[in-house]
Every structure is written in C-alpha cells, then in structure tokens.
Design a binder for these strands. Structure first.
Lengths: 223, 223
DNA sequence: GAATTACGGTACTCTTCATTTCCGGAAATC
DNA sequence: GATTTCCGGAAATGAAGAGTACCGTAATTC
C-alpha cells in the first residue's frame, strides 16, 4: 500500500527475512511529517492548488524525500487521507437520549477535526469526477466513518424506543453531513452552534421521532 | 456589465449618438455561442480544467473573438452564469397540493437543466474559496433562483393550510438542494426518480406538514 | 476602391507546477 | 575507511494553459 515496497523479500540469505539494506535508513518520522503536511496543504489550498513544493516546505523536507516514498501527488493524497482517518473516530458517548447523543457528537472534540475535514472535502470535490480512485478513497476514509458514528447513535435510539422501528436510518444519517456540507460549500455560511442546534432540534429530531412516521403522504404511494 | 464598453459616447459629432464605428460589426450571435460554449465546457471540465481553447473550439470561434469581449476567464464565466439563469425559471405550476407542487418541480423540464446546473456547481465549488466574486455570482444566479421557486411552493402550502403557520420555510427550502447536491458531489449516486420520490415523501413532506411542529424534542429542554 | 474593424486560426510569451536530477553532507553497513 | 542510501536544498526538465500578437480574409463605412 505504502510506497515501501519491501522489495525482494525472499532472495538473499543473510539475516533471514529483514530487508538488509546497505546504507542509511529511511526516517520513519519523516513519513508522518509529510503526510500531515499533505493534509494541511490540501485543506488550505484544495487539490488543484496544492503544490508539492508547499508540501515539502511544510514538512521541512526535500521533494526528493517525498518522491522516494510516493510515486505521484495523487497517491500521496490518497495515502494521506487513509492515515488521517484510520486513527481516531472513537465510539460516540452514550448520554441516555438521542438528543444528548447528537449534541455530544457535534459538541465534542471534532470541532477542529471536522472543520478540517470539510475544507479537505471542499478541496477534493472538484478533483473527484476526474480521479475516481481518489473519490472512492475520500468517501471510504472521510465520509463513511463519520456517517457510521451517526448511525450508531440512531440505532441506540431505536433500541431505547425513541425512534419508531422501521425508520430509514440511512437517510437520517446522511441528513446532517449533507446539510453541513451544503452550508459550508455552497452557502459559505458559518457552521456555528446556532446552526447545529437548529439542525438537530428542528430537523433531525422531528424527522426521527415524529409519532406518525411518514405516512401523511406516503400512505398514498405506499412503499 | 458586458465587455461592450460603448466607448467614447460623447466625443465626436457625426451622427448624434450612435456608436458610428468604422469597420465590420461585432457578430452578436457569436456572443451567445461563446457563452453557451463556456457553460458547456464548465459543466464538463470544471472551472480549473476548463480551457479557453476548449471554449473557443466549442464555440467555433477564435480566442481573439473571446478576449475582444471579456477580459479574462473569470469574467467570462461570471457573465455566462448570469445569462444562463436570468432567462428561464418560470413560476412553478400550482397543482393544488404541496405534494403535487413538489413533484411538479422535479418532474418537469428541469431534468436536463438541473443536471447541468449540478455539474456546473461541482466544477465551481473548488474555485469558490479562491474567487469570492465568482462565488457570490454563483449563489445569486444559480442557487437563489431555484431555492426561491421552492419557497414559493411552501408559501402556497402555508396559505392552503397544509403547513402550520410559523414553520421555518427557509430551512425547508434548503433541504432539497442540499440533499441533492450532497448526493451528487459526495456520494456520486444518481439523482433518479426513486431518490426524488423518497426525498419528497419521506423527508420534505413529513418535516413540513408534521402536526406537532418541532417540539417533540425541544419540549424537553424548552427553547 | 481605401481605410477600418471583426473573424477564424495559428503561433508565441510567460507562469505555474509536477516530476527529475544533482549537489554536499549525514547515517548505516561492510 | 569504503560503499551505499538517505537527507535537505536547489536547479533543470516538460507539459499545460492564460493571455497576446499576427496572418489572410470578410464586412462596413467613407
């Protein structure tokens, strides 16, 4: 996956299975510095305006060190996205109520993390139609983990009886990401506490917990 | 606004107030060809990958003809967006019910128009943070007109009594654009009839017409 | 018909930027 | 200590693309 292609793993016979390279070793810490720099620059400039010079400068590295590890800008970004998300994403806390869980989801630490994720997605959106692999990676590494956290919260609410059984949890768990994304990307309005409160209390909760499901209308069309 | 800077309007004295140019006249039809080509290429390639050569080729024009009319790529795009929207956007038909109006809104002609608009917005999103003027123009010319059509539909529903008074129509009218945009940009899933039906019947209508406004939750905390 | 301006094309200038190469020096292996 | 591979830095290569300059030709005005 990495660029470290543990090359010729079975040929020689010196130390058994070690890479047994001759010269100076790769600085593993530098890998992290470069990946973090890549995400920083991507969040700041967007994929199209992100330059490898900027990444190298931010990482205090030479461009040679980057291209010794990754074959191209696109691969570097893909790898950087994969790392930046696989680490964190703890289970959302169980506050005892759906409303409490939802607020905990947005009030907690992700303040800074999610803001960066939004900028990264913004920078990527334009490149996605042109790089399907990059698009798939972004969805898998950035979008899905966050959506699944929401889904967990809704599933707990179903278990508690706050949400009627049979409700479409997939639609519900897309609601918040979609509205936040739209507000940031298209409307360019701030994702502040007022907005999040309104989103949770006026949109998500009414839709999730409404007594009479969705049959004021769908009774006509069935489903 | 255009690039036609009806220059030196008061200097000479020949014919009174006409432009009285000497040579061959500008081909007004060419203006339209170029603007349409610009939107086509923008929808296909996105702002960053849209080239003036491609616009010229699509319009069957020379680049000179373009730069004689607009001073830069950004100005051309702004002007093209302004034109492409100011024309159409008729009042949405009144079918007698909110549900009918909403379906009429998405079933009608805009099929092709809205698909293109989505691609244009996708191509623009990445450029917006770097070109605030372009962003404002896109919001004003592309987003607002379509959102206001939705608002009109909701206002009629309030008048009919389908929507309880006091409902936040602004939030409601952002819902459909946001979810469509997110599905197209981030999820890259098709905006088909099934999706639109689900969106209208399971999300918009329940939220708009639910008997108990938004107090199933805020009743707990007060607000 | 002469002068002027637009047109489609093509070639050119200038930047930007991904990617490669090279340099002197530092760490690891032999 | 010789060799190898790494490092940061800086310069070189090459492609892409915005904007400009011309060329021969077509309209328009005088």
């Amino acid at each position: 996956m990495h660029a470290d292609d543990v090359a010729a793993a079975g040929a020689g016979g010196e130390r058994g299975c070690l890479p047994r390279k001759r010269g100076r070793k790769r600085d593993d810490a530098l890998d992290q510095q470069i990946l973090e720099a890549a995400v920083d620059v991507l969040a700041r400039d967007g994929y199209e305006h992100m330059t490898m010079d900027a990444v190298a400068a931010t990482a205090r590295a030479g461009k040679g060190a980057i291209y010794r590890r990754w074959p191209s800008k696109a691969q570097l970004v893909v790898d950087a996205l994969a790392r930046s998300s696989s680490t964190e994403m703890p289970e959302p806390p169980d506050t005892g109520s759906l409303r409490g869980d939802l607020h905990a989801l947005v009030d907690g630490r992700p303040k800074k993390d999610d803001a960066r994720m939004l900028r990264v997605m913004a920078g990527l959106v334009a490149a996605l139609p042109l790089h399907p692999d990059l698009a798939a990676m972004a969805r898998e590494q950035l979008v899905e983990p966050r959506r699944l956290r929401q889904r967990t919260v809704f599933e707990r609410a179903v278990a508690r009886g706050e949400i009627p059984a049979g409700r479409d949890l997939d639609s519900l768990s897309h609601l918040m990401p979609a509205l936040v994304f739209y507000r940031q990307m298209v409307l360019a309005e701030p994702i502040d506490q007022d907005f999040l409160n309104h989103l949770i209390d006026q949109i998500i909760l009414p839709l999730a917990t409404a007594a009479v499901p969705a049959d004021s209308s769908s009774a006509i069309s069935g489903r």
